[in-house]
Design a protein around this nucleic acid. Structure first.
Lengths: 211, 211, 211, 211
DNA sequence: GCATAAACGAGACGGTACGTCAGGTCTTTAA
DNA sequence: TTAAAGACCTGACGTACCGTCTCGTTTATGC
């Protein structure tokens, strides 16, 4: 998401001019966090306010991100922790992935502005695409591989589209952690409950008797 | 969501002065739709621009909604069609509800800015609450009643929390229609596929043999 | 110098919308004078400072003048008092004109920033032309007519170009009042001395004896 | 006007480190001239632009002049040619001095920005004083000496203040060459005409008959 | 030679002001 | 009273320069 043009990877020659200050960058991130903690809404998160709180010139911010949204997306994407290591049985890995998402949702509940920033992403097609590429795609890719493994191992039904399988398994926890306010994520047994219910099916006795 | 104080229901006396122009209201809605169609981002949707496009004074807008967000939430909530009639078997009603959400997702795919407006709601706690009350709560209520009926009729397992059952059934289609870009909603058989898969369970042959 | 586009003279129809505030305009002028009195240099005279001191929004200034220079030229040109009434003998009128310029120079000595603003005019060709048309041309015209009258009445030599006559008569006082710091304008007899010396000639006894 | 602190005269020891680049200095001057020739206004003459055009770092400029005004005053003062040699008769010297000022005015007509820079000097008291000391004072001194000689030789009236005599003789050409746009300096006979008119007096037949 | 020292180009730094834009309010005249 | 128009104050926007400060490099002197 960084828009710094000098960050091009092929720029291997000796950098000229004074290098960017890492301290300034940290101060900017700290200021955003601090302003969020102070309960600022997204509209109150102005570049000018951030610059003042960070003790930094506005140009120092614009040199790194082309606008406020880019800064927010960058910050949000940095908050995403790495995915859990894909070791163990299929069911265990599936539960671990859902537990990871539950934890993430719990973390975001405390700083709702970050969640707001995440939604802000949807305001602009470019930011949406950037966020998609940086955050969503890698996670969907991990989920898809896990599901493919499950099908190959016979742990998942093979007669369904992989995408549908993915949504059926991931959609519920995603809804709880992103769309709603996160108050339903407290139960640590949630992943196990969800996974087992999905695997076994939701049909009740009447349905089973019938079919 | 209307914030017009004169719309109070106890204002029964004969209204004095010039009455509000219905044409102005329609012009405002039309202008917003037109600006959205023109591909404007959410930030480009300014009150000033809407007023100019509608040929309306800014005060005429502020007389009806207290600010831009209120206008957007009002417009979004008007786009929600009524829920489908709850008639038929449990499975049929469940499929109908998911089909309704699929249709809504398809409609919103064409006007993504409205979807963006929906996300914009999350920027402010008050708007979030208002949208929750106006849109989310009635739909969750309908879903909850449907699920309760399913459990009572033995069509759904009775050993699971109703909320979890709700998320397992609704979460996947919600994810597809709101969080993602809607390109996966084209298949009209999607509701049937999803519902049957959920009811029967996702476990594959290896899992079934084991347990 | 006003750059207000709505000030077009043919705009005779009933003006719509809120009219410009005369109070705001006066507050702007007062703020400029006050900041000058506080000893501000020209570079310290910022639009932002003027707006703050006047308790006025920046847009209110930009609605009236397109930039700082236009505002200054407008202010300077308003400070020019009307020319003295052209009554009396030729010599008396000439002395009156020079006395008028001496007074103007004395006034400007106390507010040197206004003098600086006058020079600022020369920074831009457009402003230079505007100032020329608004201030210089009318005064040169008055001087030219006076000189023409003097020639016609036989009070001035008729063998010289009118422009040269004008510069010979006006240049000295102009130099003292504009180019230099005005410390040489205190003597109230200066106009009489100058005029009589110019009319009689500066040649000394040796020159007269020779020619 | 050079503000280089290391140029202090008591710094007699052998300078250490890399010496200042004469090429850089010339490039700076050339860049200023070039930017002026491109029709830039004074406000467009930025240090940053000069540095870029000269292919020079900003610090290289600030090492030599403390700010933009100092650079401009330095450049302007370098453009002043030496005064003409004071040889010959009084009238001849006077005409030579006025001819010198006419030539200077003609030269400046073509590069009005330099003239503007000259006026810019008036924006700041310190620069005004500096320019006064570097440029104005020597010339006024030369004029004063010439006038004093004229009085002593009987070529000029002795009953007038020397300062007034100076302004009467110099003011007209100064007005034409600095205040106005220089279009009235083309006639090479101008100095002779002016000097003779001033010496002989401007009174016409009616005035002479009367007194 | 080889350190010391200063100037060099580049460009980032904290600031200030620019001129624009929008927000939400207020003040006109007209309907 | 509402409407359209548009001016009002406020405050953020993103840009341009200011004058200062690192960077790594270059070019001189002095040990």
């Amino acid at each position: 998401m960084k828009t710094d043009p000098t960050a091009a990877p092929d720029c291997t020659g000796p950098r000229r001019g004074r290098p960017r200050s890492e301290a300034a960058e940290q101060a900017i991130f700290a200021a955003v966090e601090e302003l969020m903690a102070a309960g600022a809404g997204l509209a109150e998160l102005t570049i000018e306010g951030i610059a003042t709180a960070a003790g930094v010139g506005k140009a120092t911010i614009y040199r790194r991100w082309s606008n406020k949204e880019a800064l927010l997306v960058d910050m949000v994407s940095r908050l995403e922790e790495p995915l859990p290591a894909p070791t163990g049985t299929f069911r265990g890995d599936l539960i671990a992935m859902i537990e990871y998402m539950r934890q993430r949702g719990l973390a975001k509940r405390s700083r709702w502005v970050l969640k707001a920033a995440l939604f802000q992403v949807h305001s602009s097609p470019e930011l949406h695409a950037a966020y998609r590429e940086r955050v969503i795609v890698p996670r969907r890719q991990a989920a898809r591989e896990l599901i493919r493994r499950g099908v190959a191992e016979g742990e998942l039904r093979g007669d369904l589209d992989e995408e549908i399988l993915g949504d059926l398994l991931i959609g519920p926890i995603l809804t709880r952690s992103i769309l709603w306010d996160g108050s339903d994520l407290d139960d640590p047994r949630l992943p196990v409950t969800m996974v087992d219910a999905l695997l076994q099916g939701l049909a009740g006795p009447a349905a089973k008797a019938r079919g």
